[in-house]
């Protein structure tokens, strides 16, 4: 085995073999985050249930009851909740990944490992919250008598993977920017708050006419949430066109985020 250290590295290079040798570190970092997250808050798991549930209730009252938001013929609580759990996975993941390099600066400045492990481990930590929140969805589906289609069940892992990749793509970009520009963490929450309104969480994609619907797909979460509703609640057929646009936009974000990250990665220890 030989390692060569040079001033310039191949920045486009993703060394999967190296990532594989660091799989245990990846496992332990994820495990640490999960453990610490549920150890520090006494209500730990309860909070993971409470947060999306209360958000759903509030949204149902204001957007469903008072604003009479259309919901494709589905009771508003289950409609909004299906969107919310995917949205929360994305937005919480984005917040955490963006801070992942800075919050781990202690390790970054002292030890070498592929830095991409940090945001990835962080996203996976959020999967625990997602899994807990998904249990409530199952409860809601029983309560309102909705059954998912077979295709819907098959697509769920794909939708989760898409959410994770979108989070990572955007998160890598903001995380790397955050190392150099420390005001990113103040800008980002504001940005995420606005983003929920251009994502079909509280409204259905059908409020945009079919001709312009693809524009929604520039936000990969639009495709994810729309397909999740169609598949899990079995209320309509899947909009493959929107899903395709979402996959393309997701790929673009991943490539841009990863490339920027790769360019600045080696200098993290110098500027962090």
């Amino acid at each position: 085995m030989e390692i060569i250290i040079r001033p310039k590295s191949k920045w486009w290079h993703l060394d999967l073999g190296e990532l594989w040798t660091f799989r245990d570190l990846f496992y332990f970092l994820t495990w640490r985050d999960v453990k610490v997250k549920y150890k520090q808050t006494i209500v730990g798991v309860l909070w993971a249930v409470f947060q999306p549930f209360v958000t759903m209730v509030v949204f149902s009252v204001f957007f469903g009851r008072l604003a009479k938001m259309p919901s494709e013929g589905v009771p508003y609580p289950i409609f909004v909740y299906t969107g919310l759990i995917f949205w929360t996975l994305f937005s919480a993941g984005l917040t955490d990944t963006s801070g992942s390099f800075v919050s781990n600066s202690q390790i970054v400045t002292k030890v070498y490992f592929p830095r991409v492990i940090l945001p990835t481990a962080t996203v996976l930590t959020n999967m625990v919250d997602f899994a807990i929140a998904a249990i409530i969805l199952v409860g809601l589906m029983f309560y309102y008598h909705y059954t998912p289609t077979l295709l819907g069940i098959v697509l769920i892992p794909v939708l989760i993977l898409m959410t994770i990749l979108s989070t990572l793509g955007v998160g890598l970009l903001f995380g790397s920017l955050n190392v150099k520009y420390r005001d990113v963490r103040f800008i980002l929450p504001f940005f995420i708050q606005l983003l929920i309104f251009i994502t079909p969480v509280i409204y259905p994609v059908t409020i945009v006419s079919e001709k312009y619907r693809w524009i929604l797909g520039l936000n990969p979460m639009s495709g994810v949430i729309d397909v999740a509703r169609a598949g899990l609640l079995g209320i309509k057929s899947i909009d493959w066109g929107l899903l395709l646009v979402s996959i393309i936009s997701m790929t673009v974000y991943c490539v841009v985020g990863y490339l920027y990250f790769k360019v600045v990665e080696r200098y993290f220890a110098d500027v962090i």
Partner: peptide, 25 residues
Amino acid sequence: QITPPTTGEIRLGGRVGSLLEVGTG
């Protein structure tokens, strides 16, 4: 490999373990 050099080259013939601080992480 925590920070890259500006000039030159290093060849390492094995796995490196570095201990720049005790209790990292």
